[in-house]
């Protein structure tokens, strides 16, 4: 679905960020992109939908090269969710904001109304359609932003630290949303994140470090490599950390992801 071959990239007047980076992502895969601060996780994500262009190398999305001629086509396939819910809310009402992408694609008005209604019901935001963004919470705004992307029916979703400004409850709701997109829509998901639970829910963790793909493994393997995880500024959830600590002390226990599993492992009923 996504192929990056020997990518080189640097920001103007800065050192090279990537020199020879290659990466393949299969259709329907849920991938977490992690790495130390400034490793270029976000930059990588922006290269995929042509918001930035590489100095060398090739990027293909669903067989289409991400070049000037095809960037419009590519962007139709890729939905990009940013970190700050405020900076991606363009219009003055929820309805107008969801319509923004449709308007850009010159979708006829009748179809627009149908599609907005459909996505609003699906994401349970139908009651807010006439509200101003300033009257919504961060989590609500981010849900509106997802609606604005889903209404364009993309095949790939990129979440660029999309949950980091949200409270715990909203974050959990967003994670449910990701699971839903992954399972029911078979969407390819790329998420730049520091959230341990979200990483563990994904299928594959790619570590970007020193301009390279430094590691490519399952999320659990990543957390088991404690030094690498720490370098990527990640901390395992308490239950996982605990099961790993117990294992280190000689206890025969498999790593578990949540506290219920841990309880069941310790006191089998």
């Amino acid at each position: 679905m996504i192929r990056m071959e020997q990518i080189a990239f640097h920001y103007p007047k800065r050192e090279a960020l990537f020199e020879n980076l290659s990466l393949h992502i299969e259709k329907g895969q849920w991938v977490s992109i992690v790495g130390p601060n400034g490793a270029g996780k976000s930059t990588l994500a922006k290269l995929i939908n042509g918001l930035l262009s590489p100095a060398a190398g090739q990027i293909q999305v669903d067989g289409l090269p991400v070049t000037r001629e095809h960037v419009d086509e590519v962007r139709k396939k890729v939905g990009y969710l940013f970190q700050n819910p405020d900076n991606q809310f363009i219009a003055t009402t929820v309805r107008d904001d969801i319509a923004f992408g449709l308007e850009n694609r010159a979708i006829p008005r009748e179809e627009m109304l149908d599609r907005i209604q459909e996505v609003a019901v699906e994401l349970q935001i139908a009651d807010w359609l006439d509200r101003h963004p300033a009257s919504l919470s961060g989590g609500q705004k981010q849900r509106v932003a997802i609606a604005g992307l889903l209404v364009l029916q993309p095949d790939i979703m990129i979440w660029d630290e999309a949950t980091s400004m949200l409270d715990e409850r909203s974050k959990q709701a967003m994670m449910e949303q990701l699971k839903e997109l992954h399972q029911n829509r078979n969407m390819t998901i790329l998420s730049v994140t520091h959230d341990a639970e979200e990483i563990l829910a994904s299928e594959r963790a790619i570590v970007i470090k020193n301009g390279q793909v430094a590691a490519d493994m399952t999320p659990l393997e990543l957390f088991e490599q404690e030094e690498l995880a720490y370098e990527c500024k990640l901390m395992p959830p308490f239950a996982l950390a605990l099961s790993m600590a117990m294992k280190k002390k000689g206890c025969r226990i498999a790593p578990v992801q949540d506290e219920r599993e841990l309880v069941n492992a310790i006191w089998p009923s």
């Binding site: 605990l242 117990m246 002390k249 206890c251 226990i253 492992a265 310790i266």
Partner: peptide
Amino acid sequence: AEWLMNHSGLA
């Protein structure tokens, strides 16, 4: 980790 190992019989 120790508390659990001491109180669960697992260790």
